[in-house]
Nucleic acid binder design. Structure first.
Length: 832
DNA sequence: AGCACGCCGACT
DNA sequence: GTCGGCGTGCTC
């Protein structure tokens, strides 16, 4: 009794801002340690795997402490560095540790129980039939085949939202069994392997066998091939060989192999294999030699790393940044350090993957949302160095999207954040709303690693940090092979309209340049920013537009399904043929997307092969890369695309890039709109004339005198930076002030309005906080919830976490007020 | 977030 | 009387 009890503080995958303490039963005492997963019951029934944060002997007072059920890992799954990183992230981004846990581990490593319901056959054998309600009978009928169902299935069968009352009643009668079953998370992948039976192992026995098989030459061939592949040696256990490989090598029919198995010469067994090894890349270590200015940049980076943790590489498009990265990566790998190479989702294309595989072969691991969860678990385990298959090679270089900052590096030396300015590094939903670039710098700090930010168009924040000495700065102003930057032509849409020269959405200047390019056998890219270009329906008589039932947005018309869809909540509606305002039947489509551009363009250039690249046209797994390769191989003349075409793609034969409407992005109500427009236009323009000759960029705009347009035309990044920095300073935006956006949401507009006013008023008590709002967001209602925003500009950059605490506490106080019960508060730190 | 409990209106 | 909808409170 007097024996000391041990307890563990656990991180549970729930959005609560605290850890939970469980007792460690005696039989688990030796296995319980920081970073492993513990299986626990949380609440009345749910079972979760939780991460052990620490082990101690302090029994929490006044709490009925539960026992840990089991420990899943023999070695920690989460490193100490990761745990510190999680803590930092939860605090900095005002999220909870449980939410960070959910974001950080692939779901295959997070167990969660599900309630499953089973038919209790023995009850019916022993008892008389009790009375059942209609719904209860339905449930029993569905369960009768002996197949257990989960609650969602039963909800669907009964067509109700919550089937629990019926299940409970059935359970009390004894007719069903309720169980908490844990879904199999990660499953090993197995493959059939062929192995020589032990009874034939040994030279003598083998020779007898070979003699016997002489009458079946095909079978003999297969046996010899096996012995070859397995490097057969006497006195060594015969090595299993993949059946796939054996069959492929010999080009035989399954029958030959089967007869050898039937004779007991071969045995078949299932072996765990890696999901990654299918790509059999040999490491060619193809490092292209750097030219002088690349080498110079690399030297500068290395020198700066001696004194700075972070360096910004500002290299114009086509300056060959990738080759600089590769040399840098190589030097870290040679020191046996791990390297993380971050890319925005859209830039993680086959082109860049291929280049890195050429250089580093099988050491490259990819972490991407297109991979299955099982593959992600394998990558995670591989980096952790556990559970390795013999055909797997430890990844030294990880090429990944923003979530790869959560991988369990143990020996991280370098993080590269490519296209550093990309806004997709910021996660918005779900929480944690983290900026992967900024978090990567923090991770590097915690790991003793360096960070290299790379881009042709740095974010104002990063460039400011570099200028002010917080980061090192390295600039490359020459293009690879000395090709000059494209010539930028501004096409004035306003003037063309006045002269009635516009054809569809094209200025005469653009059409003329396309014509010339096509005639010379060159390719063209047309860029259409997607935002605001969705098709919608409009009544031609009265201007009525079909809107979403639950959100304050117009419904988008989807041609391929012939449906109206809300892009915010997913609500869909059949196409209306009658105006619900004036009953006119003259309903027309409005707005235009890439689809429309593609169509119209075909009219002007009937001979040209035109394709578009956007979310819709690249839906399938390979659709995207097949369009890209078609374009690369000049099976397409004109490619019309959205953001997707701007990143990580190099096309040699593109001489003209057209930006169809520059104003769309300039007029976006956001303090970063100008910066983003510059970045986007510069990046798109950078696709022109990457090899051979100077390219052309045409920007169609109605405001040709706009400063940003002029700066893009002159490719004057520094000028853009200076004007933007001035504005940021004047209006107290980052990097001078920190922003925190608070979103309040509630079903009742009046309650929401009042809550927002009260919250804002309470926040204004702190003079360091500049409070903007509350204001309605652009979309005032989504999914039947009203929204209101409060923006905080933090004047002082130090003590920031104290202010966050105050903001959060004030929010908690607000929700305690009976009037405001049910109001939800969403914090977004450093919003984008 | 789940999940249970409890109160209230709307059906057979 | 069921049934089904929320609003509310708790989770070691």
């Amino acid at each position: 009794m007097s024996q000391t009890e041990f307890y563990a503080d656990l991180i549970l995958p729930v959005p609560l801002d605290q850890h939970f303490t469980y007792r460690i039963p005696d039989y688990l005492k030796n296995e319980c340690s920081k970073g492993k997963r513990a299986v626990v019951q949380f609440g009345k029934k749910k079972i979760y795997s939780a991460i052990i944060k620490n082990v101690h002997q302090n029994c929490p007072p006044d709490i009925n402490v539960k026992d840990i059920i089991d420990i899943l890992d023999s070695t920690p799954l989460v490193t100490d560095t990761q745990l510190s990183f999680w803590d930092w992230m939860a605090e900095y981004y005002m999220s909870t540790i449980g939410e960070v846990y959910k974001a950080a581990l692939p779901s295959g490593l997070r167990l969660e129980s599900n309630t499953s319901v089973e038919y209790n056959a023995s009850f019916f054998e022993e008892n008389e039939l009790p009375d059942f309600s209609q719904k209860e009978s339905l449930v029993l009928d569905a369960l009768k085949p002996g197949k257990p169902l989960n609650l969602e299935d039963i909800n669907r069968i009964l067509m109700v939202k919550n089937c629990m009352p019926f299940i409970k009643s059935l359970f009390e009668k004894g007719t069903i069994k309720i169980e908490e079953s844990i879904e199999k998370g990660f499953q090993q992948k197995t493959e059939k392997y062929i192995c020589l039976s032990l009874q034939y192992a040994g030279n003598e026995k083998l020779n007898v066998l070979i003699e016997k098989l002489k009458r079946a030459p095909k079978q003999l061939d297969l046996l010899t091939s096996y012995l070859d592949l397995s490097n057969y040696e006497e006195n060594v256990l015969p090595k299993p060989i993949s059946q796939k490989l054996l069959v492929k090598k010999n080009q035989i029919q399954a029958g030959i192999l089967n007869s050898l198995i039937k004779k007991g010469i071969f045995e078949i067994r299932n072996e765990n294999v890696s999901r990654h090894s299918s790509t059999q890349h040999t490491e060619t270590n193809l490092l292209k030699p750097l030219n002088d200015f690349q080498q110079n940049a690399l030297d500068q980076i290395n020198t700066l790393f001696n004194e700075k943790g972070t360096v910004l590489l500002h290299g114009i498009t086509s300056s060959g940044k990738t080759e600089i990265y590769i040399q840098l990566i190589d030097s870290y790998l040679k020191e046996n350090k791990q390297v993380l190479y971050l890319l925005p989702e859209i830039a993680l294309t086959t082109q860049i993957i291929e280049r890195l595989r050429q250089a580093f072969g099988t050491k490259v691991g990819i972490y991407h949302s297109k991979f299955s969860d099982a593959e992600r678990v394998e990558t995670y385990n591989n980096i952790l160095g556990i559970d390795m298959k013999d055909n797997a090679i430890p990844f030294q270089l990880i090429l990944g999207v923003r979530s790869s900052i959560f991988l369990p590096f143990k020996n991280l030396g370098l993080i590269i954040v490519d296209e550093e300015h990309e806004s997709s590094y910021k996660q918005y939903n779900p929480s944690p709303r983290y900026q992967a670039r900024d978090s990567a710098i923090m991770l590097a700090n915690l790991s003793g690693a360096k960070t290299l930010l790379g881009t042709a168009t740095p974010s104002v924040e990063s460039f400011y940090n570099a200028k002010s000495g917080k980061f090192g700065l390295v600039s490359v102003n020459q293009r690879f092979m000395g090709i000059s930057l494209p010539e930028v032509i501004i096409a004035d849409v306003k003037e063309a309209r006045r002269k009635k020269q516009m054809k569809s959405h094209f200025t005469p200047a653009l059409l003329y340049q396309i014509e010339i390019a096509l005639r010379q056998g060159e390719q063209v890219i047309l860029f259409q920013n997607r935002r605001g270009f969705a098709l919608y329906l409009e009544c031609f008589e009265c201007g009525w537009i079909p809107k979403c039932k639950y959100c304050d947005v117009s419904l988008t018309y989807h041609r391929y399904t012939n449906q109206l869809v809300c892009h915010y909540c997913g609500y869909s509606h059949n196409v209306v043929d009658k105006c619900s305002n004036c009953h006119s039947t003259d309903i027309r489509t409005r707005g235009f997307g890439t689809e429309k551009i593609e169509e119209d363009l075909q009219i002007f250039f009937p001979e040209a092969k035109i394709k578009r690249l956007d979310l819709d046209s690249s839906r399938g797994k390979n659709a995207h890369s097949s369009i890209i390769s078609d374009f690369e191989n000049h099976r397409i003349d004109i490619l019309v695309g959205t953001q997707m075409i701007t990143k990580g793609l190099d096309f040699d034969n593109v001489s003209l890039v057209g930006i169809l409407d520059a104003n769309q992005m300039l007029n976006f109500p956001d303090f970063r709109a100008y910066e983003r427009s510059f970045q986007l236009m510069a990046q798109v323009g950078g696709r022109a004339g990457r090899k051979i000759k100077q390219g052309k960029v045409i920007i169609q705009t109605i405001s040709s005198e706009n400063l940003i347009i002029q700066q893009v035309a002159k490719n004057d990044y520094e000028n853009m930076f200076n004007t933007q920095l001035n504005e940021r300073k004047q209006f107290r935006y980052p990097p001078f002030n920190r922003l925190i956006n608070i979103s309040l949401k509630h079903k009742n507009k009046a309650i929401l309005d009042k809550a927002a006013i009260v919250y804002a008023k309470a926040l204004r008590l702190l003079p360091e906080l500049e409070i903007i709002g509350p204001e309605y967001p652009v979309i005032g209602r989504i999914y039947d919830f009203y929204y209101k925003n409060i923006l905080i500009k933090l004047k002082k950059v130090n003590r920031i976490n104290d202010f966050k605490k105050f903001i959060r506490e004030t929010g908690k106080q607000l929700l305690k007020n009976d009037e405001f019960k049910g109001v939800q508060i969403i914090y977004d730190v450093d919003p984008y």
